[in-house]
Design a protein around this nucleic acid. Structure first.
Lengths: 153, 153
DNA sequence: GTACATATGTTGTGCACTAAAACAATTTAT
DNA sequence: ATAAATTGTTTTAGTGCACAACATATGTAC
């Protein structure tokens, strides 16, 4: 089966009717995001970096000294979720918690020297992975998407 | 605080630099999808319907008699995840499993009469909710988004 | 027809993400 | 000084997702 050129007894199933889902942005966003998530995982799971961890890395790298709750707020995450994420990134020696001198309740987050080197390698991976997906688009469509999606947060 | 018109002592934090995230479609998709997910939940959680359940309902309604794995494949879900979903929808008396006569391994899925009535109410809720979000867009942008996002699955 | 491979629904497991509540330590407001 | 709010943390619970394994049933090869 499979090599036989018999297109009378079609092996392919009837096409599925998606009804209203075909016009629902929420559903299409979920599907597209799943594609990007899987692509990211395939490219970076061996480095132990998930999309969630990556976001924290970027924000800490671009904003040295931010507190955990500030990072959480920036990424629309819950404060409590940051604990495990920062623990993990600290164990990977990518970022570090320093005691804040202004507010002894909070930690200030910084990249480690190794974290900065790691970040460069990571960025390369992520960029290549995204470029691969952008090949599916026509010139300008990516920018259009980014601009429109920004309206939803 | 809050009513005082004192914009010299700004209470707002320094703006966060998002670095490469600002140009990453994967990240923006995640944020936008989160908005839609929360909006959907706010509109339909009292009916006990999540986005995932809704997708199954639509596919079963539009394709009566489909098997569980066919529905799973159509929605890019895992077979094993369908068990719990169909169990839940059956307990809500929205769909039913019928023994397939052609293949005694599989179930054929159908909407119940009550499920069909429920579906009408549900569609109204979901449409209203999505319309609310579409107000953030200019005419034509929704269709543009749908067309471009389709390229990613 | 028998033996082997495949498909289906199901169960169980593990992992990650999410949200909410509660708490001690600290800071801020009154 | 007292009360209220904030920070990081822990705990808990719920969800979703992916993978492996299994019994049942179907299909294929010989």
């Amino acid at each position: 089966m499979g090599s036989a050129a018999n297109n009378l007894v079609s092996t392919e199933e009837d096409p599925v009717n998606y009804g209203v889902l075909d016009h629902m942005l929420g559903y299409k966003l979920r599907r597209a995001q799943l594609t990007f998530f899987n692509s990211f995982s395939a490219a970076c799971s061996d480095l132990g970096v998930s999309p969630g961890l990556f976001g924290v890395l970027v924000v800490v790298k671009e904003n040295p000294g931010l507190t955990q709750t500030a990072v959480a707020k920036a990424l629309a995450n819950d404060r409590s979720a940051m604990v495990g994420v920062v623990d993990k990134l600290e164990k990977m020696d990518l970022i570090e918690r320093r005691l804040s001198k202004k507010d002894r309740r909070s930690y200030a987050l910084f990249m480690t020297p190794y974290g900065l080197k790691f970040y460069e390698k990571l960025i390369k991976r992520v960029s290549d992975q995204e470029e691969e997906l952008y090949k599916l688009l026509k010139p300008g469509e990516k920018e259009m998407l980014l601009a429109i999606l920004d309206k939803f947060d």
